[in-house]
């Protein structure tokens, strides 16, 4: 509307200007072609990636759907495929994840906070920064070897839930550190200065503000790290997790004082991906069905964890605008 008004009110433009306008429009059209091209390529790449995942998932579900019942979750592994279940595997995974969480979160958050808020910025902290980033790229089997040497042989922790939890904790530590630092960096300087300006100490600024405004991002990093740890197989095999377990670790909570015990930490265990790997390596096709069902469950749990991460970040960020 504006443009039609403009043309009626302004005197007719000289012919040369109109000709130029035509050229300008043609040029804009040419340039806009790039927009379309790129969004097409991007969409194609996205579809391809999603389709692959979808195919994989559908395939697993199709193969394993017969085992989607409660029995599959409440039975121990068995020689008879149709009665074999995931009980020891999912309990093992849950307990290992608990240790992983308890190891990775305090250490990762403390390290990230220290690097970002307290450490002097010099060549040494640069060196540490580069190394932390590099650690995230170290193949997980290397962590397994480290854990075998350190936790199993030197510290004599055995092939236990504790060893597995510590190993996976170390594995996701860089993820937690990096996500902690990034969330902290997202807090504007103005907010820190506001807190310092009323007389807060560094720790008050960290505790009352930095941690409170960044925990959404930290939590996201933790959950994504945990989702990765859940699927890790190589380091767990390296430290010698058992593959056929027909018992549960001692329960962490008891009915006699002091109501918690730590025996479960030194218990043998198996985890979901190892159980899957074990079934997959059997010649009997019936076990492959179990493996497919396990695979589908791992994917669903992983997606749920990532979904939770996204939801939490959204929910926490909603109250923070900068």
């Amino acid at each position: 509307m504006m443009s039609t008004n403009m043309t009626t009110e302004t005197p007719p433009a000289p012919a040369s200007a109109l000709k130029n306008l035509g050229e300008v429009r043609a040029m804009i059209k040419r340039h806009k072609l790039n927009d379309y091209m790129f969004s097409l390529i991007g969409l194609l790449a996205l579809t391809l990636a999603l389709l692959t995942l979808l195919t994989l998932f559908t395939d697993l579900v199709m193969d394993g759907y017969q085992r989607f019942n409660m029995e599959f979750l409440t039975e121990f592994p068995s020689r008879r495929a149709a009665h074999a279940g995931l009980l020891s595997a999912w309990v093992g995974s849950a307990l290992v994840m608990l240790v992983t969480f308890l190891v990775a979160v305090p250490m990762g958050v403390a390290a990230g906070l220290y690097l970002e808020e307290y450490a002097p910025k010099n060549w040494f902290s640069d060196l540490i920064e580069i190394n932390v980033t590099n650690l995230a790229g170290v193949p997980s089997i290397v962590y397994g070897l480290l854990a075998l040497g350190l936790f199993v042989y030197i510290l004599d922790l055995g092939q236990s839930i504790l060893t597995a939890g510590l190993t996976l904790g170390l594995l996701i530590l860089p993820i937690v550190i990096v996500s902690t630092r990034e969330s902290i960096r997202a807090i504007p300087i103005a907010i820190r200065e506001a807190a310092y300006a009323v007389g807060a100490t560094k720790w008050q600024v960290v505790y009352d503000h930095v941690l409170k405004y960044s925990y959404g991002g930290i939590l996201t990093g933790v959950i994504i790290g945990m989702a990765r740890a859940l699927g890790e197989t190589a380091p767990i095999i390296t430290i010698g997790a058992l593959t056929f377990i027909a018992f549960l670790p001692p329960t962490p909570v008891t009915d006699v004082a002091p109501f918690i015990n730590f025996e479960w930490l030194s218990s043998g265990f198996t985890v979901l991906p190892i159980q899957m790997f074990n079934w997959l390596s059997r010649p009997d096709h019936a076990f492959h069905i179990n493996a497919a069902a396990t695979g589908a469950i791992i994917i669903v749990v992983t997606l749920l964890m990532n979904g939770t991460a996204i939801y939490l970040r959204y929910k926490i960020r909603k109250n923070i605008k900068w």
């Binding site: 907010i191 200065e193 506001a194 807190a195 300006a197 009323v198």
Partner: peptide, 16 residues
């Protein structure tokens, strides 16, 4: 010093 002298900044910077 900051306990005795307070400051108001250029852009409003309330805490979330």
């Amino acid at each position: 010093v900051r306990m005795r002298i307070s400051m108001v900044f250029q852009k409003p910077n309330p805490f979330p």
